[in-house]
């Protein structure tokens, strides 16, 4: 299987933050969800991919070619959507097209016009006059109009209502009908990924704690609930993010450890959100 994006051993030191040995890959034909709490290092990783920050060490390869400040040809194959638009506020939509289209070797005006129409954008409107959802759609229209092979989405849904989010998901599904494409989808709203993502990379405090198939991640943990007296101290140690309250305890457990707990404990299917919450609790409680 070919990787459309390959990040290996990325390190970046800031005064108050450290990106540590970040490695993961997006296989061609699939959607990689990139999750983690705010400030975990998602944006720094994406900025490294785009060459906006220089990592202290490590490499980023897109379709096999390594990216650097002077090797930017490969960006012809990338479409980027961020939570906020990066166009001049006063630009009209046609100005945005005029500004970016000369840089792409496969720019297709007709495709762009179709997206503009489909998304309900109006050519004569200024960027600043667009709603949050419309701004995201504008970035998406640009990203989809030059035959990009890799889409990089950084928190695209953070300001969107459920309807706009659902529309975005539909567009991404359409895009993925072509198996040569790939998406890196960074978000802290995991419900977006719960269904659509094939793979998940999970980052906490600048370190990757999981990267692999989403189904495997969701199968490898369970939610546990029970009475405080149900567990002995050894069993308690198996619980990730163990938390006691007046009427019992709750936490997360690895699937392989289920057999070690007494039978009266309740196990439930876990969600990505819950995994983040418990992993994060565990991460901070060790510090």
């Amino acid at each position: 299987m070919n990787n459309i994006l390959e990040i290996s051993h990325l390190n970046k030191r800031y005064e108050e933050f450290l990106l540590q040995n970040v490695s993961f890959s997006v296989p061609q034909g699939y959607i990689m969800g990139f999750i983690g709490p705010n400030g975990a290092g998602k944006t720094t990783t994406i900025k490294s991919i785009l060459g906006m920050v220089y990592p202290d060490s490590g490499t980023v390869k897109i379709l096999g070619s390594e990216i650097s400040s002077e090797n930017t040809e490969i960006k012809d194959d990338i479409g980027v959507v961020m939570d906020l638009p990066f166009y001049v506020d006063e630009w009209k939509i046609k100005d945005v097209e005029a500004a970016v289209s000369p840089f792409y070797s496969r720019w297709n005006s007709k495709v762009f016009a179709d997206f503009v129409r489909k998304f309900g954008l109006i050519q004569n409107k200024k960027v600043k006059e667009l709603s949050r959802g419309m701004k995201v759609k504008l970035m998406l229209a640009i990203a989809l109009s030059h035959e990009a092979k890799l889409l990089i989405l950084d928190e695209p849904t953070s300001g969107l209502d459920p309807v706009a989010r659902d529309e975005l998901m539909d567009i991404l599904r359409d895009y993925m009908l072509d198996e040569t494409k790939g998406i890196l989808f960074s978000t802290h709203i995991t419900s977006d990924l719960e269904k659509i993502a094939d793979y998940i990379t999970f980052i906490i405090n600048g370190k990757i704690v999981f990267t692999g198939q989403k189904d495997k991640l969701l199968e490898s943990y369970f939610l546990v609930k029970g009475g405080i007296s149900d567990l002995n101290s050894l069993q308690k140690k198996l619980i990730i993010g163990y938390r006691e309250h007046s009427a019992g305890f709750e936490g997360m457990i690895k699937a392989e450890n289920i057999g070690m707990l007494p039978e009266n404990i309740i196990f439930e299917k876990i969600s990505l959100d819950e995994i983040i919450i418990y992993m994060n609790k565990e991460g901070t409680s060790h510090e």
Binding site: K47, L50, G51, M52, S69, E70, T72, E73, I74, K75, D76, I78, G79, V80, M82, L84, F86, Y87, V88, D89, A99, V100, F103, Y104
Partner: peptide, 20 residues
Amino acid sequence: AVGEKNGIDTLYATLPLKKS
């Protein structure tokens, strides 16, 4: 001035543009 106000360096980073 205008570029900085609008975060245009991100736009440059998305395009196949060298710093040169």
